[in-house]
Amino acid sequence: MDNVAATSFGDIRALPKAQSHLHLTGAMRPGTLRELATRYGVPVPPAWDHTRVQEWAAFQGRYDAAREVIRTPTDVARVISEAAEDDAADGCGWMEIQVDPTSYAPAFGGMEAVVEAVLSAAAASPVPTGVIIASSWARSGDHAEALARLAVRYAGSGVVGFGLSNDERLGDVVDYVPAFRLAADAGLLLTPHSGFYTGAGHVRDCVDLLKATRIGHGTAAVTEPSVLALLAERQVAMEICPTSYAPLGVHEPSDVPVRTVLDAGIPVTIGSDDPLVFGAGLAEQYALCRDVLGLDDALLAVLARHSIASSAAPDEIKRVLTAGVDAWFR
């Protein structure tokens, strides 16, 4: 590609940025997974086969199996600390970690205990870290509302957002309106997954009905100009994770529509989603944007600025990181 920048991978690591799409279990290092699995006597889930496209169920099965090794606050602290170390090495100065406490709750004695363990770990993280509480598209609106109330309870104590994760085909947007209204009233970021498997209309509904401030993935929006226009008008950021799509048959690496979204005037924040499964950290996501999608230094800096501006980082952290981006790209 003619406009691929000459920057090295090391230079990309020097670009200050924020991490806004990272799931707790998916942030675990493979070595940590193996060690904890041995400690608890559970099988290590097989590595993802990147040579073939697989269905969502294959991903979810691996993710669920990996989650079985996170059983104590010490385990949570290790995962978050190591994830922050990895992101810091990739130039990250603010990290947001997303967790659905539901499936961890039996081991921890309840969902509140999970949230408190995550918040304690986030407070001790080597990178300033905010926590996003997420419900699941596979669970009811009532369940989401209970989690939203939990998120609201800890707003101002480290919880910065509320989301919906898992396969968005499994739920109906309207069912989650009350939960998102509660989170919005508390001033939390609102970031549902959408437009991964579902179409552009689903993304529109998440903006119109849930009042999303960011959309997890959302790449289906590029198929409908009116949805792109809506996202641009409301400046709803899209969290694009370049390595997450090809293994699940959504986009080939060269077809991830980062440039299309930017050209539409929509903020884009690049995330790493689940490095444990997809095998790539934050700097590698930016490197894919450069080397495969052809984004030059100026656009990499735009992505970094968007990641910072659309995050829940305190204003002083945003100022420092943005100044760093300006220094990186003159």
Score class of each variant (00 low, 15 high):
residue 304 A to L: 10
residue 77 A to G: 15
residue 106 P to R: 04
residue 265 G to H: 07
residue 105 A to T: 10
residue 174 V to E: 12
residue 167 D to V: 04
residue 18 A to F: 00
residue 328 W to V: 09
residue 6 A to T: 15
residue 217 H to Q: 09
residue 75 D to I: 02
residue 223 T to W: 01
residue 72 T to I: 11
residue 239 E to C: 13
residue 58 A to W: 03
residue 53 V to I: 15
residue 124 A to D: 12
residue 271 G to V: 11
residue 305 R to Q: 07
residue 266 I to H: 03
residue 197 Y to Q: 06
residue 327 A to P: 00
residue 244 S to V: 14
residue 81 S to C: 14
residue 183 A to D: 03
residue 283 A to L: 08
residue 116 E to W: 01
residue 298 A to Y: 00
residue 177 V to N: 03
residue 60 Q to D: 14
residue 269 T to W: 02
residue 325 V to D: 03
residue 47 A to R: 13
residue 113 A to Q: 14
residue 91 G to F: 09
residue 132 I to N: 05
residue 52 R to H: 14
residue 226 S to A: 12
residue 328 W to A: 11
residue 271 G to K: 00
residue 297 D to L: 14
residue 59 F to S: 01
residue 192 P to T: 10
residue 45 P to G: 13
residue 85 E to W: 06
residue 296 D to C: 12
residue 19 Q to T: 06
residue 93 G to W: 00
residue 16 P to I: 13
residue 260 T to Y: 00
residue 131 V to R: 07
residue 173 V to K: 01
residue 131 V to C: 11
residue 9 F to V: 12
residue 59 F to E: 02
residue 7 T to V: 15
residue 289 C to V: 07
residue 220 A to D: 00
residue 248 L to W: 01
residue 307 S to P: 02
residue 321 L to T: 03
residue 108 F to I: 11
residue 137 W to Y: 15
residue 198 T to C: 12
residue 79 V to Y: 03
residue 50 H to P: 13
residue 260 T to F: 00
residue 320 V to A: 15
residue 55 E to G: 15
residue 93 G to Y: 03
residue 69 V to W: 02
residue 231 L to R: 04
residue 213 T to K: 00
residue 75 D to T: 09
residue 286 Y to E: 08
residue 2 D to M: 10
residue 128 P to R: 12
residue 154 Y to E: 07
residue 222 V to W: 03
residue 3 N to Y: 06
residue 38 T to V: 00
residue 275 P to G: 01
residue 111 M to G: 09
residue 124 A to I: 02
residue 288 L to D: 04
residue 84 A to M: 05
residue 286 Y to D: 05
residue 140 S to W: 02
residue 181 R to S: 13
residue 299 L to Q: 15
residue 140 S to R: 05
residue 256 V to K: 03
residue 327 A to Y: 00
residue 209 L to V: 04
residue 46 P to M: 01
residue 301 A to I: 04
residue 50 H to M: 08
residue 243 T to I: 03
residue 3 N to G: 15
residue 10 G to V: 02
residue 42 V to W: 02
residue 90 D to M: 06
residue 25 T to P: 01
residue 256 V to P: 03
residue 16 P to Y: 10
residue 151 A to F: 07
residue 312 A to H: 05
residue 94 W to K: 00
residue 115 V to L: 13
residue 164 L to Y: 07
residue 220 A to M: 03
residue 281 G to L: 01
residue 118 V to F: 04
residue 223 T to N: 08
residue 220 A to Q: 06
residue 28 M to G: 07
